[in-house]
């Protein structure tokens, strides 16, 4: 009975997440990316194409801004006037931040994007009707829409090339939204295996494709609620809290010596990706 269900569990239904909620347990997948280690080489991005059946859209569509890279490497020049970029460029790998309070989730008319129990921002392709409201409301603009029917497009996956497609990941047809999933197919496989053995997924047991490829190991990924995990340790060491919009350490006058920060956290989406600031030598 739904009405009785409604009345009996009222307090549950009125929980705000993640503010006064029960923590994710046993899993909360999270990432930390050291942009000082990131060399901007794009290996992660290619790995993502390989793992997640991302279509290569071609020159013309790329020109129209219809590229599909779930993981993009942004290149910024430092923010001051210069003749030459003497401190190099800044590379920032950007993908879905798997926000705990994701702005995209509330606006989807069909509920195709939701928050999962292990702390992911799910995207259900077969439910999506393509209103693109989620993308409109995403502060990071990391959602990618299938403007064309790539699976049937001979230039994208010609006869032999489609044999490379990963059977664990749906191939998206036209009209649906897609985005980084934290390689959910790998996470779920690991979770199921662990469950069969009556334990939780151990640190290092599962990697995302980008993390696996990254030649400088700039990407750490793991279970944030597992005290053994590297991600947990990093978040803790950097004093980055999940459910705040300004970190305590940033309130210190003169700033903190800790490098961890989350992008656009002041908008309160509570991203699950922590970045570690780039460092440049002060002696030269």
């Amino acid at each position: 009975m739904s009405v009785s269900n409604l009345l009996e569990n009222w307090s549950q239904f009125r929980h705000f997440h993640p503010v006064d909620d029960k923590p994710h347990d046993p899993y909360k997948w999270a990432m930390s990316i050291d942009i000082d280690a990131c060399s901007g080489c794009n290996a992660c991005s290619v790995a993502c194409y390989a793992e997640n059946n991302i279509p290569v859209v071609g020159k013309e569509r790329f020109q129209h801004g219809q590229q599909m890279h779930w993981m993009r490497i942004e290149r910024y020049w430092p923010d001051h006037d210069f003749d030459f970029p003497e401190q190099g460029a800044e590379f920032l790998p950007m993908m879905c931040q798997q926000c705990e309070a994701a702005p995209c989730e509330t606006v989807c008319p069909v509920g195709a994007t939701n928050h999962t129990a292990d702390g992911l921002n799910s995207q259900i392709y077969n439910r999506c009707i393509g209103s693109r409201y989620c993308s409109a409301n995403c502060p990071f603009k990391v959602r990618y829409f299938n403007w064309y029917d790539y699976p049937t497009d001979e230039t994208v996956w010609p006869a032999e090339m489609n044999r490379q497609l990963n059977p664990d990941v749906s191939v998206r047809g036209k009209g649906v939204m897609e985005k980084c999933t934290f390689c959910v197919q790998r996470l779920r496989a690991a979770e199921v295996t662990a469950k069969g053995e009556g334990r939780i997924v151990r640190e290092g047991e599962v990697q995302t494709a980008c993390q696996q490829a990254c030649p400088t190991s700039a990407i750490s990924f793991g279970n944030l609620v597992d005290p053994e995990s590297r991600v947990h340790k990093q978040w803790q060491a950097q004093q980055v809290e999940m459910n705040v919009d300004e970190q305590e350490k940033d309130k210190e006058p003169g700033g903190s010596h800790l490098r961890g920060y989350r992008i656009l956290e002041e908008l309160r989406p509570y991203p699950s990706v922590m970045y570690l600031e780039r460092v440049r030598e002060s002696a030269i």
Partner: peptide, 9 residues
């Protein structure tokens, strides 16, 4: 699937 955007169910 109900939890969306950190808002109550």
């Amino acid at each position: 699937e109900q939890l969306k955007g950190g808002k109550p169910i």
